[in-house]
Design a protein around this nucleic acid. Sequence first.
DNA 1: GGCGATTGGATGACATGTCAACCAAGACGC
DNA 2: GCGTCTTGGTTGACATGTCATCCAATCGCC
Lengths: 163, 163
Amino acid sequence: MEGTRWLDEREDRAWRGYRRMRRLLDLELARELTQDAGLSEPDYDVLSDLSETPQGRLRLSELADRMLWSRSRLSHHLTRMQQRGLVTREECPDDARGAIVVLTPAGRDAIEAAAAGHVTAVRQHFLDLLTPAEVEALGAFTHRVVDHLAQNRAPRPRRGTEA
Amino acid sequence: MEGTRWLDEREDRAWRGYRRMRRLLDLELARELTQDAGLSEPDYDVLSDLSETPQGRLRLSELADRMLWSRSRLSHHLTRMQQRGLVTREECPDDARGAIVVLTPAGRDAIEAAAAGHVTAVRQHFLDLLTPAEVEALGAFTHRVVDHLAQNRAPRPRRGTEA
DNA sequence: GGCGATTGGATGACATGTCAACCAAGACGC
DNA sequence: GCGTCTTGGTTGACATGTCATCCAATCGCC
């Protein structure tokens, strides 16, 4: 790795700022979330994704893909959430191997109780500190990066010829 | 929480993009780092922060503060890194309670071997996908957010009258 | 319709992170 | 100097995440 292009001052500032912001924002959002709603960020994400579907139900693997989680992680996490009464598992009619994750009424209550406060926190500590142009730019470049990264990865449900 | 201002389309796009980018970028950077250098991201961060000091040595608490880690987390992690020979602990001359974390030659080698590849990956999957104006904007708003978040938190080394 | 390959999901062992004690040493008031 | 309060760091118990493995059900192909 001889001809490495190191980061210039501007890039270094951006990269460090990004990472520090991430960390602080995570800490703060997680703190408020547990305090106000008794949920962790992963909890919130699961409930949020579920609640965005019409019936509050999703195949486990579908949910895992949306969240970019491994099936294993999700399965473990669901077991814990299930014990708290936030979700349940149902059998899948069309594929007997499959599991359907279902939002319980308690889970629905939990996310509805948490959502407003969480969005407010996201605004207060992040979005509202940005100018409209910055928000626009953020949307633009994050999606560009996502598209780029989504390519290398997961050559769609296909033969595993990669790498 | 009646009058919640929910996210408009632009904000929602930015927020989702941000979170998805984070996740994908983490996965990819961590993947390359372990593969090419046998280090996790936390490992890399510890080594990187240490190597930025003139002597490759830092008080444990100072390092923890820089990284925004709890002392406990750092202590555990150092124990593991120490077992791999990447760092050592020394007694602190001016404060007998204190511990000084020291980069070993092997640790120095490890970070030097990893750095170029990591920076290249950061460029390839992130910075180089942004226009100079976007990099500039990223540096600007992340630091703004960091400053904001740093305020609520940690009322400096002072009496603990908070909250 | 039967057999090997793949897939969906669960599980156990292990790595990592958090939280709440704990302990020794410094700081401070007297 | 000596109680008491705080601080720096470690530790153990526990929560969470990862990885490899396993099993049953589906798929493909004949």
